[in-house]
Design a protein around this nucleic acid. Sequence first.
DNA 1: CCGGATCCTAATGGATACTG
DNA 2: CAGTATCCATTAGGATCCGG
Lengths: 115, 115
Amino acid sequence: MRYDVMCPRYEQAAQLLGKKWTNLILRILMGQPRRFGEFRQQVPELSERLLSERLRELEDEGIVRRVVADRRPVFVLYELTPKGQELEAVVRSIQTWANAWICIDGQSVRTARRR
Amino acid sequence: MRYDVMCPRYEQAAQLLGKKWTNLILRILMGQPRRFGEFRQQVPELSERLLSERLRELEDEGIVRRVVADRRPVFVLYELTPKGQELEAVVRSIQTWANAWICIDGQSVRTARRR
DNA sequence: CCGGATCCTAATGGATACTG
DNA sequence: CAGTATCCATTAGGATCCGG
């Protein structure tokens, strides 16, 4: 078997999930639709620029839908699409693995390599 | 519920899986232990520098074990640890999701946003 | 209230050459 | 055979300020 070609969708999915803040945003959305400002309250360390960028990426991927309520003041909701909802299985499998193999201290598992 | 803190292990796992070439390396290792040069044959586009870097990262995470056969010429095998083997469930869940939600063309799913 | 525009720095990845 | 070392281009992310 040759492995010269990657699955582009897999790559895209994995790289998206690996980006900073993405998983946090997804988790928050898994509970319920959220407004832009709610993310900021929930995660003060996440800047508006990155929040906006991540939401846009997820929207581009069809994982998140942006719903604009057309009244004043402007009111925007972000919610998971079906595609996004099915990501929950992935998120949980990563979490399960991480929980199972967590190590307590920050030490490397790797034994010293000879130089 | 507050989401001000991320699960560091989850983050680390997701970010590792999202790095370029990592998933390919894992897939190759899931079949059987491999030698350094075998990766290069299987994936010619992957440079020695990055291959070495990825393997080292996976080793540091305790996902891959580096086994040196002490005879001439030097002979090195990389193999999955139990921790690494259990990543297969994660890889498969990502693949399942990616397969289910693949789109054929390169077009964005997102409907145009008003500017 | 919901972002966009800018600027700057750090991290990532590719190419190439060299070594125990 | 199995890597390191170096250099460079691109990308990702944080900080800050501005606008409909």
